[in-house]
Amino acid sequence: MPIDAKKLVKKASQLMKPVEKFQCESPRNTTTEGETITFDYAWATHLNDDDFEWVFALFKKNMMEMYQKSQWGYDENSKRNELRATTSRFIIAVNSKGEKIGYLTYRFVVDHNIPVTYCWELQISPSYQNKGVGGMMLNTLERLSEKAGMSKVMATVFLYNSPSLGFFHKNGFSEDVTCPSEDSGLDYAILSKATP
């Protein structure tokens, strides 16, 4: 019997605090340097203006140049709306001094008739990159995906963003069946990892 993808996604999308409900936070919470990181969880629509501006500033710092050279181009209003979408949720990483250092935004969606958790953005402050913070948030997302009954976790990555491609591959992601072929002329890859 096929999974009713729409029902599963609707049910998951209605959960008020999914990470807390399923108690699926990553067991890892220290950086490679031993600093303890804590996490906050929020709907995009519940972020206050200051938090949202921090989110957007980090996105811009890390990604604006990549978007400018992409086939999509950089459209600030469109990206703001995307990050503030009612279906978007955030995992926000906070360092031991109480400063926000990164975030992951995700949505539960139906992709090619399959219920999936889509990692929309994963941005880490430059001073905290390569210290395990992104891996902790991704691990939480994978655990959440399993508990919510989603088939896989997906992400879209620019082909010229080698640090990001390396990060996802290191965390067990590979090209999804929906990934454009190399001769498609497109400048991004669609990656996924099946939930256990």
Rank of each mutant, 00 (worst) to 15 (best):
L144S: 04
L165N: 13
M154R: 11
G135C: 05
G132K: 01
N139S: 14
Y118C: 08
E121T: 04
L141T: 14
R80F: 08
M136V: 04
S181A: 13
G102H: 01
T178V: 13
G98T: 00
S125N: 13
F173C: 07
G149P: 03
W120R: 10
E65T: 12
T178A: 12
Y128H: 15
S88Y: 07
Q68I: 12
P115G: 11
M150I: 06
F173G: 06
S70D: 03
A155L: 06
K100M: 01
K69G: 09
Y74G: 07
P163L: 07
K69F: 09
K131A: 15
V94C: 06
S70G: 07
I92D: 01
F90P: 05
S127V: 11
R89T: 02
K131Y: 11
P180T: 08
Y106F: 05
A155I: 10
C119V: 12
L159R: 13
Y128D: 05
K97R: 14
L122T: 06
F108Y: 03
T156W: 09
G134E: 06
K170M: 09
K79G: 04
S162T: 14
Y106S: 02
L83I: 09
V133D: 00
H112W: 10
S151M: 10
K79F: 04
Y118Q: 08
L138V: 08
Y106E: 02
S162G: 11
S70M: 06
T105R: 08
D75S: 11
G102D: 00
F90L: 05
G134L: 07
L83P: 07
E175M: 13
G102S: 01
W72L: 14
L104N: 09
F158S: 05
Q68R: 15
E146Y: 11
I114H: 15
I101K: 03
E76C: 07
K100S: 03
V177F: 13
G149L: 01
G73E: 05
R84D: 05
C119L: 08
Y74W: 10
T86N: 14
N81K: 11
K79D: 01
S181C: 11
Y103C: 02
P126T: 15
S88N: 12
F108G: 00
M136S: 05
F168C: 08
D111C: 14
V177I: 15
G132R: 00
L159C: 12
I101R: 01
S151Y: 09
L159H: 11
Y74M: 06
S145T: 10
A155D: 06
R107Y: 01
T87M: 06
S162L: 12
G149I: 03
Q129Y: 06
K97V: 05
N81Y: 07
S127D: 12
K69E: 12
M137G: 00
V133P: 00
M154H: 11
S125Q: 14
V110F: 03
G98W: 00
T156R: 12
I101W: 01
Q129A: 09
T86M: 11
N139R: 14
I91M: 07
I91F: 02
V133E: 00
R107E: 02
M136W: 01
T105D: 10
M137P: 00
Q129D: 06
N130M: 10
K147R: 11
M136L: 05
S181H: 12
K100L: 04
K79R: 08
A85R: 00
Y118E: 07
S174P: 06
E65W: 09
H112D: 15
